[in-house]
Amino acid sequence: MTDNRVAVVTGASRGAGKGIALALGEAGATVYVTGRTRSPGDADLPGTVFATAEEIDARGGTGVPVVCDHSDDAQVEALFRQVEREHGRLDILVNNAFTIPDGLTRKGPFWEKPLGLQDMFDVGMRSAYVSSYYGAPLLTRSDSGLVVNTSSFGGRCYMHGPAYGAGKAAVDKMAHDMAVDFKPFDVAVISLWMGLLMTERNAALFGAVPERYQSIAATAESPEFSGRVIDALARHPDRMNWSGQVLIGAEIGAELGVVDIDGKKPASHRPMLGDTPTYSTAVVD
């Protein structure tokens, strides 16, 4: 892989996307940071696309902020046209944009939760497809392209109800099927199950009731850990061996010698939350 890698990380104003973007930037990449938050105060949580890009610059990479609503296909197309004008190719695409509707973690059956939880099918499931669609021609020009759909154990176990689970299962299967189409172009596609992350949202939750969440907070991964795993996968000469698979971040991180920002190796939640899916090798055109 070239040293001047070009990456797009969607939904990177904060949370997992920000951590991934920072890790890739620290590794020297030019990172296009997308999201809707322009200014502090525009969202309930801290973070903007501009702040993430500035921190990437400070860490030695090049951050390119792009205000983009991933529910608007025209804005997504414009994003990749910008990448094409400025670089002519794309090496890493991280499909991370995801909406978190009110009521997602509310207890109870799905019919007692807001119907708006289906918004996750738009910014989450559908947005991953659209970004991959517009990014594909640029990825095929890379000498070692990689697409990563960020996902979770919710794609296999019951987590927050059927809307969340369906969305995560969809991006997992999407990675498997896209890998078939990308294989002739030497572009790897994987879905990455992240662990519990110490995002701004979770940090606020844990801090509000520390006595309740102290033990679980101690097991949380930094958002940057996922970015370090993605960087290691992108650099690996045999990255195509993992293409089409759902990978657990903690496990593939351990295999590739990746540690978190505190120097620790996060533990896999497989024993508690279950195995990754296995798909058929049949291809029906």
Rank of each mutant, 00 (worst) to 15 (best):
V9R: 03
T10C: 02
A16E: 08
E26H: 11
E26K: 15
A27E: 13
A29P: 01
D57W: 02
T62V: 15
V66G: 04
V67R: 10
D73K: 04
E84I: 03
I92W: 08
N95W: 11
T99F: 11
D102K: 14
T105N: 13
K107S: 14
G108M: 10
P109K: 03
F110G: 00
W111C: 00
Q118D: 06
Q118A: 14
D122S: 13
D122K: 15
D122M: 11
M125L: 15
Y129L: 10
V130R: 04
T140E: 12
R141S: 02
D143L: 06
G145Q: 03
V147Q: 00
V148A: 00
V148Q: 01
N149W: 02
S151Y: 00
R156D: 06
H160Q: 10
P162C: 07
A163V: 15
G167I: 00
D181Y: 14
T199W: 09
A203C: 04
A204H: 05
A204Q: 08
P223M: 10
F225T: 06
G227K: 09
R235Y: 01
H236M: 02
N241I: 08
V259Q: 11
D260S: 07
P266H: 05
S268R: 08
G274R: 04
G274V: 07
V284G: 00
V284F: 14
